[in-house]
Design a protein around this nucleic acid. Structure first.
Lengths: 332, 332
DNA sequence: TTGAAAGCGATACCAT
DNA sequence: ATGGTATCGCTTTCAA
């Protein structure tokens, strides 16, 4: 009559039976509570070991409402900027004893929705990078605390960590102009939609210096993307002597592209990136950049998630900002 | 008599009451099962929204035994090698619909034990890098599937993904010798314990070339570590003309150190790393390296975890290997 | 020191 | 189409 090879889960009940005690006693032994005889405890532990018993995290979580986990959405973990954000978030979470479930959305909006659906069912809050419209996010988040990084939220439903690079970019362009540059281009990111905020800062800074719009090329967020975009830019605008880029990865690609085109940096071409990733100090020449406190970005996101979760005075927009400042090294 | 501001969790029961239906009907509405009237469904959905209801992931997990999550232990996410391993593991996991809980053990053995304790209670399997003794790991893992990366397991209790760089390192040293180098040093890693396996390969390769032991310096696994170690090495052994390093990060540090010492690479000093991280192609000169299929490392780990979990013919030691091969670029 | 019973919050199965 | 009831595996509360 018995079903033979069927492999049921080993439960606390099985251990109890094997040790000849009740379930509660097993629980006591396993959780190191007092109120239990040493010999009993040992017997239970042995039984548990013999049966390869593992408590169900679900059952346990159901009863002790403690463990918190937060989902982290990252567009591309291999992009060193996002790596740094992730590392910072991880650290902030560990300080709180939180678990972090990481999802690499692979820079794809389709992936993102599926991922979002998946993550929201398994975490207490979500932080990170989102590209889908607010309404869509809300539809799957369903009241779950959400913290966007580097993305405005028109609806006011979500928290968002803002990056304010206006002054930093202005400083960068001013520096270039003071160094004698007049034809300054930009390598913007590749989004199919409107130009980036960083482009707006660039355009404003150019205007403030009385320069009018500079030429812009779109670049994929990768070294190769930056390399190609620079060649593209210089082909159409050979008179350009300086470029500002959407981020450091693209800038590093530009450095490479310049080398291939035989343009010396910074002599023939000045390059200023945006982000301030550590990688920028490893390349030759070292990259000048409008630098962010990247770790703060990740830490702030987790901090805000924590406040949202406990309902305790969430940070306001004025606190959820990171300012960028010009960090001059060798490339400009 | 009512308790006022107390904030209980909103359960399916509350929604049911609010919508004037039973719990099962709520469940149907939320999970898009059929067998429910459209108007009822809408009413339930509205109620759920109004109450900001979110199903408990624990309760849900308890009854539908599907969602699987795996813990990933990484010593230092900012080290680009580990970043690549993590990205690969993430990708392999997503292909299976698994969740990945990532922990950065911050290169600290103390952190690791606490982390391990934390992670094991929240996942169905653990993969990654471990430094604690097997017995300790087992004590907290308690029968949980564990896959070690780049670490032998004496006990046979765990699976381990091996790296076999013997031939690759031999090829590297041979190449150096053929290029005329005789004094070849190594920058080994900084573990307090015995020399690394990679050092053994180095020593054997040296012997095979009839060269005897080369000088060795320990280096912290960071660019700064490699930089300092190289200066250290060259100070004590100025006649060294080539170095092999424990990994690429250290090698990149060595590149920097060489530059600071006024040694041109590869003319005055040849450098060969180990790993083959993408970063190696971004530095000047591009790094030669005994390269691994890093993505395979992460993918294999997850694959094996999957087999262990389902009990279906786990891969044997012969399959759990990644070979390294010499990839020559500019630094040697 | 130990055990019996009552949840925790959801879904599945079986009636109706 | 909808509701009742059992159940998932564990911890907590209260008696004994």
């Amino acid at each position: 009559m018995s079903s033979g090879t069927e492999s049921r889960r080993v439960t606390i009940h099985d251990v109890a039976r094997a040790a000849g005690v009740s379930r509660q006693t097993v629980s006591r032994a396993l959780n190191d509570k007092g109120e239990i005889d040493d010999s009993t405890k040992q017997r239970v532990l042995d039984a548990a070991l013999a049966l390869r018993y593992r408590p169900s995290r679900f059952a346990r979580g159901l009863v002790r409402q403690d463990t918190i986990s937060v989902g982290l959405l990252i567009p591309d973990l291999l992009n060193p900027f996002f790596t740094e954000v992730a590392a910072a978030a991880l650290e902030a979470a560990r300080a709180r004893g939180w678990h972090v479930v990481v999802y690499d959305t692979a820079d794809s909006a389709e992936e993102e929705l599926g991922t979002l659906r998946m993550v929201t069912s398994q975490v207490d809050a979500v932080v990170g990078y989102f590209t889908r419209p607010e309404a869509e996010i809300e539809q799957v988040a369903r009241g779950l605390p959400v913290v966007l990084i580097d993305r405005e939220d028109g609806t006011g439903r979500f928290s968002s960590i803002r990056i304010d690079g206006r002054d930093g970019v202005k400083a960068a362009i001013s520096h270039l102009v003071e160094s004698g540059h007049r034809r300054i281009g930009m390598l913007d990111h590749d989004a199919r939609t409107e130009p980036s905020l960083r482009h707006t800062w660039f355009a404003d800074a150019m205007a403030a210096c009385g320069l009018g719009e500079g030429p812009v090329c779109r670049a994929d967020q990768s070294v190769e993307g930056g390399e190609g975009a620079l060649e593209n830019l210089l082909t159409h605008h050979p008179d350009v002597t300086a470029v500002f880029t959407f981020n450091d990865i693209i800038a590093i690609g530009a450095l490479r592209g310049a080398r291939r085109l035989g343009r010396r940096v910074p002599r023939d071409l000045a390059v200023i990136g945006f982000d301030g990733v550590r990688l920028g100090t490893l390349v030759e020449p070292q990259l000048s950049s409008v630098a962010l406190d990247i770790r703060r970005l990740g830490a702030l996101a987790v901090e805000q998630a924590a406040r949202l979760l406990t309902g305790s005075s969430p940070l306001g927009p004025d606190d959820l900002v990171t300012l960028a400042e010009l960090r001059l090294r060798e490339s400009a």
